[in-house]
Design a protein around this nucleic acid. Structure first.
Length: 265
DNA sequence: ATTGCTTCCTGAGCGC
DNA sequence: TGCGCTCAGGAAGCAA
């Protein structure tokens, strides 16, 4: 399940592999994988590649944008042999130099969208701040959560508050901040809010350095796993470093892992 | 405005 | 060996 560090790793890989390439065609192997919001005859070249939250944004020389969301099992794998195809290839972006990007996605939740800049700005505008930017600080977070009664874990997953955090990093952030994930947004004091900000930035930065976390499906553009799974402290763990058993609960339909000795209300 | 439930989808893992 | 069940979860859509 790619979250911000995994998506950033993919963007870094794409910049190395496909920047400047001329797109010749986009093939759709499974219906509803590519969504066309704009007419497009000639794709042009890839001018630049960005990330916003968990979205990959590919800027084309014809001013159209390709946005890619990988959801749970999506991958973008660079392939220099056009005849190679993977079992779960849902679409392919083919380049004029006979290389391609395979959009591989077992569970088919991922999407590639083709759109004008104005439309992209609209959909992206619903996202909250980038957690690694200065705009994400204690004042911002306090303002966003101090009237909310939802559990802090759920708020961390809310992309309109912070863009890019998913289920694995949400558990890890709260573990390091030593905060009980069921604590409500409006119950957190300034010190706790500051800790969340600090550890969010630290964990995401460390995970990017490790090229992300691979639990099962995630792969980089070069089809490699990440390394941060080796540094997870609670997600998927049975015992905490303190020796206590890790608790596993469901929040917003997702598993939350935490240590009820180290993380307090 | 906010919260929380359901839906989409397929493979892995498990019990029988 | 194989069937049926549950689980994994990002985000849209919807109801309360």
């Amino acid at each position: 399940m790619p979250e911000l560090p995994e998506v950033q790793t993919i963007v870094n890989g794409l910049r190395k592999k496909v920047l400047g390439k001329q797109i010749s065609e986009i093939l759709e192997h499974r219906k509803n994988t590519v969504v066309w919001h704009a007419e497009c005859v000639d794709f042009g070249k890839i001018v630049s590649i960005d990330r916003r939250g968990k979205y990959i944004i590919i800027h084309l020389s014809n001013n159209l944008k390709l946005t890619v969301h990988l959801r749970m099992t999506g991958k973008l794998i660079f392939e220099s042999d056009l005849s190679k195809i993977s079992l779960y290839a849902r679409a392919e972006i083919v380049f004029e130099d006979n290389t391609k990007l395979i959009f591989d996605d077992v569970r088919t939740f991922g999407k590639i969208e083709v759109m004008e800049e104005s439309e992209m700005n609209f959909s992206i505008s619903k996202l909250g701040v980038e957690p690694l930017e200065k705009e994400f600080n204690s004042e911002y977070l306090e303002d966003k959560i101090n009237r909310r009664v939802a559990p802090i874990k759920n708020i961390l997953l809310d992309q309109s508050v912070i863009a890019g955090i998913g289920n694995i990093y949400a558990s890890e952030i709260l573990f390091r901040a030593k905060i009980d994930p069921t604590k409500r947004g409006n119950e957190l004091n300034k010190k706790e809010i500051a800790k969340i900000v600090l550890h969010t930035k630290a964990i995401l930065t460390e995970a990017i350095k490790c090229n992300g976390t691979t639990i099962s499906d995630y792969r980089s553009v070069e089809d490699k796993t990440g390394d941060f799974q080796n540094f997870l402290q609670v997600y998927g763990k049975e015992y905490c470093e303190c020796g206590s058993k890790i608790s596993r609960i469901k929040q917003a339909g997702r598993s939350t892992f935490f240590c009820n000795k180290c993380q307090r209300k």
